[in-house]
Design a protein around this nucleic acid. Sequence first.
DNA 1: TCTGGGGTCCTAGGACCC
DNA 2: TCTGGGGTCCTAGGACCC
Length: 414
Amino acid sequence: MIVFHIDVNSAYLSWEAVYRLQHGEKLDLRTVPSVIGGNEKNRHGIVLAKSIPAKKYGVRTGEPLVKARKKCPNLMSIPPRYELYMKASNALFQLLQEYSPFVQRFSVDECFLDYTRSNHLYGDPVQVAHSLRERIYQEFGFTVNIGVSSNKLLAKMASDFQKPNQVHTLFLAEVAQKMWPLPVSDLFMVGPATVRKLLKIGITTIGDLAHTDLGLLKAQLKSHGELIWRYANGLDDSPVHVGDYLPHRGVGNGSTIAFDVTDKRTAHKILLSLTEKVAMRLRASGYTAQVVAVAIKNSSFLRYSHQTKLSAPTDVTNEIYQTVCRLFDECWQKEPVRHLRVRVSDLKPCAESQLLIMGAKQHSKLQSIDRTVDKLRKKYGANVLIRGIFLHSGHKAVLGGVGEDDYKMMSSIL
DNA sequence: TCTGGGGTCCTAGGACCC
DNA sequence: TCTGGGGTCCTAGGACCC
């Protein structure tokens, strides 16, 4: 197998920079300390993407803008434009398909491309990767890193080497020299919690991990131990998934609220606006759901959640919402709430949906109302129909979401 | 006005059944 | 009237990814 991993450098920031240059702006955001940052008034104030100059000041993705500014006082912060980023992402995805029909969209800014069967058509993979990289820059104006290897894990690790605008290889024979000296935290699927556990048994580099006894790792880290041991040794046999190969597992929508919620009525209103979007997206996906969950983050940043399995799957907004409210009431500890999330899972295709349950008539009536509302909202926008409860309430009727993501988000298993 | 949002997978523990 | 013990389902929480 020959796999490319294509990774857009500082994706949101690059796309924003290119857009601005194309619209007459003189300054290239990529050349100065800058970030794409959330709205601080709404308590969304974190770094979503950073330029390379900002990185040199120690600015990190995910950290509060306040903290980033302390490291870099003249940091520019630009609000995100998700629709633009989605368009750029789609354009890249389209272009990649010219090189192989086997392209897996891994996230908004990452794709895997299975080059195995393109090899005899287009020739040497490394040369092709270089021309692809150059072509993306010429046609789109943003840069990518491309990792080339014999499996997805190594291709992904390779694309993470020196940036930007580079092609790197990481074939099995190169693993010892190029990957083993790196800190173990650089390995895909090794996060902070795992780093702490590994440090306790004396593992600090990927090479250390690769040479550790598998039995010991399994004893300490269960199945995750085996996974990262295999990765450290460059082993991965997962295929490049195309199209809808991976089924949806659930649909969720959550939001940090601009103020702390301290009463049940307000909480229910926000939960309704979250549920509206979840149910719309569920219906659009053609699934019904049997598990409903509510998650709360309180003002101390403590998180907890509560879920239940319905007696029958549903895609009806009202049925989900009733359950959401019950779950919230059952688990809310009465402290100020910072963030709320609604999630449905245990999905079944719509066709399997029940017809002979109690109250089936009421259920199908609600279903047809929902579908009508969906159509109108699709045509005229989310605010064409607003529930009476939201009128003059100061709350948005449909809350959350980062643009219409009609692509699959990543899965943690390659 | 310090700390987002959307995913997936795994594990532990309790309930329940035979 | 000292105790079992698998198997499955369900829920909560944690870990990881971008």
